[in-house]
Design a protein around this nucleic acid. Structure first.
Lengths: 190, 190
DNA sequence: CCATCATAGTCAACAATCTGAATAGTCAGA
DNA sequence: TCTGACTATTCAGATTGTTGACTATGATGG
């Protein structure tokens, strides 16, 4: 059971449809979990049959109806149990790092390109996360909000996501610059 | 195909057995990939039938024989192709972050405890990685090594792993301290 | 009028990963 | 001599995650 708790955690924020969860970066969980729409729909269906969430149909005009889900008491209890049992250690799992690991044995140019792209994507995500943080703390000072705010969980996970993206961007830029210099130097030597 | 390239990348460093990879994933590729022994043995077998690695039996005394694998030319070519095609974006996927996301709705104490444990584990990994970096650069200065060293790929991935662990540790400590203060403050108010 | 995008959701097939157990020999300590 | 830990590997089965296609409707742009 993996995705289920991420979905439950996302739904603690309020009512969402599968579609909203699939799209929603502003719903926070995207910082530390990723899933395709199909998985989310499937997981929501399973959670509903198990009584951990309930869905209600919302009739819409000008667009298809949707089903909004919220966590039940049983769902919250499940989350409570999940939070209390030991978490397994986490790790980065990233194709790009595999490529960099092998970069001394293969052509560096495409790896440099991918590092640059990744850095740009990180920039975009950083901007999004910074805006999200401002929104979450509602104009208040960060320290103040963290001391006295009501819901600091999503804020803390955003901070983690932001730090990760910043580190990722800086490292990508540094590695790209370095590999470029080395390629240039190698060409210089013939 | 996912694990296969991580294994190939690891084997670019030299000859290893499945067992060594399973253990030393802590040292080598473990910064950005994780796999159980069973997966590694299975993947190595598949890679061998496809001719991307070759294994040779090494007879040992006082312990079971082992099979050491190395990358073939076909394997290197496969790595080359892999490095050249676009990498998918990566993300953190971590149970502990899910728990922190939900911390406003569940008991904070076990989450704080897990954050503290995680910070300690990060400390241990930081120490390991720092030693590994020193070993990799062979006593030379880092800048100098990165400019002129022969194999910078593993060094760069270690740097990324180190940055990740440091960020992780700092965030865990900060989150744990903050949640503790908030719990104390809440008790104070009754 | 047509193409395309956004909303909203579903199905089937497949690949990747994890859980749990088993085998089998060596070595060190109680 | 029994116990447990380390080396070294294998098998079966379940769970998770990915790929690709498909159904609808309404809105937007050319």
């Amino acid at each position: 059971m993996a995705l289920r708790h991420a979905v439950l955690a996302a739904l603690l924020d309020g009512e969402y449809s599968g579609y909203q969860l699939a799209k929603g970066f502003d719903i926070g969980v995207a910082n530390f979990w990723h899933a395709l729409p199909q998985q989310l729909y499937a997981e929501l269906a399973k959670l509903e049959t198990e009584g951990l969430v309930t869905g209600r149909e919302v009739v819409q005009e000008g667009r298809p109806n949707k089903r909004l889900f919220r966590v039940t008491e049983a769902g919250l209890a499940e989350m409570e149990r999940f939070a209390a049992r030991a978490a397994k250690p986490s790790f980065i799992r990233d194709d790009l790092l595999v490529k960099v690991q092998a970069v001394d044995g293969v052509a560096a140019a495409p790896v440099i390109e991918q590092l640059t792209e990744r850095a740009q994507m990180a920039d975009a995500k950083i901007e999004l996360l910074e805006k999200l943080l401002v929104k979450l703390r509602g104009g208040a000072d960060e320290e103040e909000f963290l001391r006295t705010g009501e819901r600091v969980g999503p804020y803390l996970t955003c901070l983690r996501g932001l730090a990760f993206e910043r580190e990722s961007r800086d490292w990508c830029r540094r590695a790209a610059a370095l590999l470029s210099e080395r390629t240039a130097a190698a060409r210089g030597r013939g």
